[in-house]
Design a protein around this nucleic acid. Structure first.
Lengths: 135, 135
DNA sequence: TGCTAAACTTGCAAAATGCAAGTCAATTTT
DNA sequence: AAAATTGACTTGCATTTTGCAAGTTTAGCA
């Protein structure tokens, strides 16, 4: 059965593993940063998200806000009002991601701060087109 | 200064935020699944990774093993030997990701198990080409 | 010495991302 | 009350990443 052209059944997680399912939803470079901003700053508008130092682009921000809203991890502060100046905030489910971000931040602080590792970020791209870094 | 064509300076994290840096490195759908497999099963070979239920493709697996090795989050069990049957295992830095995966798994178990949310996975793709799901 | 299979590579189509510009409606300003 | 402004998105297109199928290479075995 389809709803507005979207298959409502036959939609699948990659596996039944909860970690895998979490990554199906949040496994990208932007979604958790939006959650981070909401944890740090509280309710936040579209243009405030754009001010974060990572400089997300407008179309990606819109698609992620859309997805997180759909997942009920965020919601509008004023559900009835127009979108202008109508901030987003975390729902209970979104706020429950705090321990994940704390663990991730703690890990990065202790295991990722060494500057030597930074060059590795080019690794994947280099594989495709350029010379190899000699490790 | 360049090393083998890779700029060793001028490489940058998106920001100084540790969460952002963690996502620069691990923010995709596959890297943390490799770490998960190593936590669950212990040392694991290339072909064993391919058997995981999420069905990673060979080129992506190779690039991620390469990246994680470069970041010193994983290593070969026998660094001197040839690659055949030479499993990968977690380093201390990689094993330190366990709390992240535990938090993520716990969150998904409690906040992502409801079947109703599954259709949201099509959200982003639908934005680009198809009709909208009526939420 | 030849065969098998594990560990990758390569090529190419499809999808996601990033950037710049454009749209649209709600305020503000004049 | 008309015009200008601004916030919240869309759209178009080039670039990058992903996914799939097939091919290559080399260690270890028969």
């Amino acid at each position: 059965m389809d709803i507005a052209g979207v298959k409502a059944e036959g939609v699948e997680w990659r596996s039944m593993c909860p970690i895998s399912s979490a990554l199906d939803v949040l496994g990208d470079k932007w979604s958790l940063l939006i959650v981070r901003d909401l944890i740090i700053h509280g309710p936040r508008t579209y243009s405030q998200f754009l001010e974060s130092p990572e400089r997300i682009s407008t179309n990606i921000l819109a698609s992620r806000l859309d997805l997180l809203t759909c997942l009920k991890l965020i919601e509008r502060v004023n559900p009835e009002a127009a979108s202008r100046n109508n901030a987003y905030r975390l729902t209970e489910g979104g706020a429950a991601l705090r321990p994940v971000l704390e663990a991730l931040g703690k890990w990065a602080g202790t295991h990722l701060s060494a500057g030597e590792k930074i060059a590795c970020l080019h690794r994947i791209r280099d594989r495709l087109s350029g010379p190899q870094y000699p490790y």
